[in-house]
Amino acid sequence: MFRTSTIALLLASSAVSLLAACGDDGDDHGAHELEVITTVILTFTPDGGGAPIVAEFDDPDGDGGDPPVVDPIRLAADTTYAVTVGFENRLENPPEDIGAEVRDEGDEHQVFFTGTAVDGPASDQPAAPLAHAYADVDAEGLPIGLASEVTTQAGTGQLTITLRHLPPINGAATKTAELAAQVRDGGFAAIGGETDAQVTFDVTVAAP
């Protein structure tokens, strides 16, 4: 009798150790897999030279916890600025540059400039303080939006920066030339893909 119980126990324990042995295949512990973005950085460099103006949307502890800190954007009127949009994960040390990944996969990403402060491809408000134009292209010749140009006029409003991930559906590209116009006419609901980041800044453009 004891012999049978012993065999049963042995069988059970060997099954258990088998499980333990084959369980550890390819767990990804790296934070890189998580695609967290904590910070959006806008850098406005005046055309005629001068100190760049930097504004951040920063949520250093990620979702929840402390609310994010948003810098207001103050620009001089009647000036053309080169604008770069950066994305970082500051939960990592050193911070992870997500912007570089977006650039590498530019044909599946686009940054949109919308809100009451913007007139441009994705926002139809001619009187707005910022006139936006894309200044970069992906491999297909479509704008990415990591580099842009804005021309200012006095006024106030809100600027929403949206990073949209546009992976193809069954091989069909979802990033098309019409996206910005579709957003302008129908908002983000009108286009496919997923929002990786969407943050809003207060903008004040005043005479220098």
């Binding site: 499980l19 890189h32 897999e33 992976p167 997923e194």
Partner: peptide
């Protein structure tokens, strides 16, 4: 009765191509 169970669940989100792993790993 003695029983051992091991439940491994991985959930994979739509991510950038550079990412290959799962975004949620429960063991």
């Amino acid at each position: 009765t003695y029983a051992f169970q091991h439940d491994l669940r991985r959930e994979y989100d739509v991510v950038r191509q550079a990412t290959t792993g799962a975004q949620f790993n429960f063991r």
